[in-house]
Structures are given as structure tokens and as C-alpha cells.
């Protein structure tokens, strides 16, 4: 655990959109909901590894851009009847900046 890392100003992440954070080989999708809550999940769909950060965000879910699996941003789980899960990371917002717990 590397503690909290400042990653971006919240306004650099579009509402109902996402940005990609690259960390060594891994990618993490940073999502901003309509109510400005921020979620971070592994940028790979449990189905075929599609980049979830590129999907359409609605409610607290994202639709994978490759085959439209619906993934919950809250717990990383695929919406039924699809089965699978992708890793989640803790986030917080302070003074307009997004922090990620790594």
C-alpha cells in the first residue's frame, strides 16, 4: 500500500466520463459520476479485457465499449446475467483534487 496519491483536478475528468491512469504496465479508469462522486476501477472488463474507461457512464455503472457488459463502478461486478469482477481502488476528493489509494 503506497497511501494516497494525488492524480488530477476533478475538473479534468468529465462528468459521466473517465480518464485513464497509467501506472507501470497497469491502467486504472478514473470515473466521475453526475453527482461528482469519483470511482476507480481496473481498466479491463472481466469479459474480454475491454478498456472500461472508454465506455458510456450512467448511474453508477459503465457499459464496456467492446461488448456492452455493464460493470458496477461501486464494486467492480458485472451486471447479471454476466458474471465477473474487476478490481476497485479507493478514491477521495480534497480541495478539488482527486486522490487514489494505491
Amino acid at each position: 500500500m503506497g497511501g494516497w496519491v494525488k492524480i488530477a483536478a476533478i475538473d479534468d475528468i468529465p462528468r459521466l466520463g473517465a480518464r485513464v491512469l497509467r501506472r507501470e504496465e497497469a491502467e486504472i479508469g478514473i470515473f466521475r459520476l453526475e453527482d461528482d462522486r469519483i470511482f476507480a476501477i481496473n481498466n479491463a472488463c472481466p469479459h474480454k479485457g475491454g478498456p472500461l474507461s472508454q465506455g458510456i457512464v450512467y448511474g453508477d455503472k459503465v457499459a464496456c465499449p467492446l461488448h456492452s457488459w455493464k460493470i458496477s463502478l461501486v464494486d467492480g461486478k458485472a451486471e447479471e446475467p454476466d458474471m465477473g469482477e474487476t478490481a476497485c481502488f479507493n478514491t477521495k476528493v480534497e480541495d478539488g483534487y482527486v486522490y487514489l489509494e494505491l
Binding site: 468529465p14 462528468r15 459521466l16 466520463g17 474480454k48 479485457g49 475491454g50 478498456p51 472508454q54 465506455g55 458510456i56 457512464v57 465499449p65 467492446l66
Partner: peptide, 19 residues
């Protein structure tokens, strides 16, 4: 609203299977 467009139209390119 770009966030209501499928990724291809949002970034004006076609997404492929490997992203």
C-alpha cells in the same frame, strides 16, 4: 453531449478489440 456518444464517435476513431 460527448459522454452520450459511443466511444468511436467521442474520439473520432474506431475502437479495436485490444483497445
Amino acid at each position: 453531449d460527448p459522454q452520450s456518444r459511443f466511444i468511436n464517435e467521442r474520439v473520432h476513431a474506431n475502437i479495436q478489440k485490444d483497445g
